[in-house]
Nucleic acid binder design. Structure first.
Lengths: 330, 330
DNA sequence: GACTGATTTGCAAACGTTTGTAATATTGAT
DNA sequence: ATCAATATTACAAACGTTTGCAAATCAGTC
């Protein structure tokens, strides 16, 4: 029912190939009056290109796929905005597919869907792939890159912060302020990222010639609730004078719970977040945090995928987002 | 270079049509040993269906398009999750395209993109379309529906809350608690939604036999900053005893600013949000809010689009999300 | 008016799948 | 062995676009 290139060709008294070339902008070899007429008729008839047909014959698509984990962190949005910004200037569409965080079946489904669509590139957000899904990605010969999560396997390309450095800098920042008993809440231990951040934290203590204790580390899965639980566990009378939240949400969980327990932040307890998302500004006191370059991750990810250079892992930088939740120990 | 249905057909010594039918699950009319063999070979050869080709011939796609406004509200995520949940069970993919909030050119671009892709349905999030884009949508004959924003034009289908009722209930809730001087911050006046909420607010006053004053209404664009500005404008010595934020963010802006001014919430000033997103839980005091059924909007939107019944506007219900930011006047 | 060269346009194949219809193979009864 | 009925598979067209190459048209020159 839709009007096709053929219909236009007929009413314009030219061949379909002429219409096609004109509509795709190859107007150089055409008389300008033909170009005008064809364009006018196309608009008049309400022509809409059939992308499926075009992609079929050209064997390529203008869609970027983003596979997002369901995880309840909140930085995805920022990354996706970065992705969109570059996609827009390159006339690429973005298709977003959700996959469970570690549900390999859902992941598989998502990856398969986008491969079958022959997308131009695949960006995987905060996703840790299993063996089989790694194979699937590779076999597709579609460029792909992982964002916001470093990976164990050295041959999978990713863009993320250096998590060891994050752990190190977070601890170092507090140590330099004079804190010596520093908690770490909500870390997902057992994951590559979680373990790295912890090692960075430990290294900072080592460099400072100080000891850390096991009970200062409360693991979890980066969530608000993990922060709440950690703080409840330590309790009001804790020896800790500063706490690092493994994510902004975890940090806010810690902070709110501390406040609920009747403690003051930052005077009695300093709280430092990791991520530096917009949440930091809307809580009181404003959260001081290690700010990751999420927007930049998204931008760079797309750029790497569409430049046909080799796809290699890189780190984005991070800095301190100043707030009011951290101070020197009183 | 990718392995096609033909390749499978050759190695399996059957015709392409056999392979196609088997791979699409029409196994009823095939000998089970053929089915087994074909499936095995397909997997072995690493076959991935070419969706573009399939969509071209079947003339339909399994993609739902979501057009999202860039606006800095934060409920989109919840709606999108609702959309995904229904999409998943119906084996539909979701393509998300960003468009400016009221930039008609960007909107046009986004709509055109998804139409050209022949998507199965279009969901427009918090978008107010212009004349031309309305025509474009209509002419495509693709089912579409607007979410989270009611529309002036009676013939455009939407799913949203009844904004008049929201304004009414928000004011009524505070009036019933005994407040009589109630502010309203961040409303985007001049938009259909903003005006409706204000009229609801006014009606509640009227019903209570009370008067409201113009300077109690501070317009804006639903943002955090608008809340901040409104509260700064009223100042510490305001006569107001309660304030409605036009969005959660606006309410939080009001609340934080009030706290920064040295006021206490809710004792000196009650603050009520509109939306009821997850933000309400992470601020202190927890924000009491009118909670809209965003997840439900997403779910219902998809259901309406894929059931081939007529697409009509409906309202979703809302309720009060209890928090600690509202109390009776002291 | 024929020839040249440049400009403009058309032909036809191809992309990989689906599907209506036709063809073939199989089975069981005679 | 023959036949009918059924179970299984193959043929071929179609979807709407792009694109290499060939064809047609045109302007200018002799």
């Amino acid at each position: 029912m839709r009007v096709t290139i053929k219909d236009i060709a007929e009413t314009a008294k030219v061949s379909p190939s002429t219409v096609s070339r004109i509509l795709t902008g190859q107007t150089d070899n055409y008389a300008s009056k033909t170009v005008k007429r064809v364009c006018r008729i196309a608009v008049q008839m309400g022509y809409q290109k059939n992308t499926a047909a075009a992609e079929l014959v050209t064997q390529k698509s203008n869609v970027l796929a983003v596979i997002v984990s369901e995880t309840k962190t909140n930085f995805s949005e920022e990354i996706i905005q970065g992705i969109h910004s570059v996609a827009l200037t390159n006339r690429l569409s973005v298709m977003i597919v959700y996959a469970g965080e570690s549900d390999q079946a859902l992941q598989h489904q998502a990856i398969k869907t986008v491969i079958e669509r022959g997308v131009r590139g695949i960006l995987l957000l905060a996703i840790v792939p299993g063996e089989e899904n790694t194979r699937l990605l590779r076999s597709s010969h579609i460029p792909f890159i992982f964002l916001a999560t470093a990976l164990d396997k050295k041959d999978l390309p990713f863009i993320s912060s250096n998590d060891f450095d994050i752990g190190y800098q977070a601890a170092d920042y507090l140590l330099k302020l004079g804190h010596v008993k520093i908690g770490f809440a909500g870390l997902n231990l057992g994951t590559y990222v979680g373990d790295l951040r912890l090692r960075g934290y430990q290294r900072a203590f080592q460099k400072a010639g100080l000891d850390w204790r096991k009970e200062w580390i409360q693991s979890g899965r980066w969530t608000y609730q993990d922060g709440v639980n950690a703080m409840k566990g330590w309790g009001r009378a804790t020896e800790l004078t500063a706490i690092i939240g493994a994510s902004d949400l975890a940090a806010i969980g810690v902070m709110n719970t501390a406040l609920d327990l009747g403690m003051t932040v930052p005077d009695q307890l300093s709280v430092l977040g990791i991520d530096g998302t917009s949440l930091c500004h809307i809580v009181r006191p404003e959260l001081t945090a290690i700010r990751q370059a999420f927007y930049e991750m998204g931008r760079r990810g797309v750029q790497i995928l569409i430049n046909h250079t080799s796809i290699k892992s890189t780190f984005t930088s991070f800095d301190i987002l100043p707030g009011s939740s951290v101070t020197a120990p009183q």
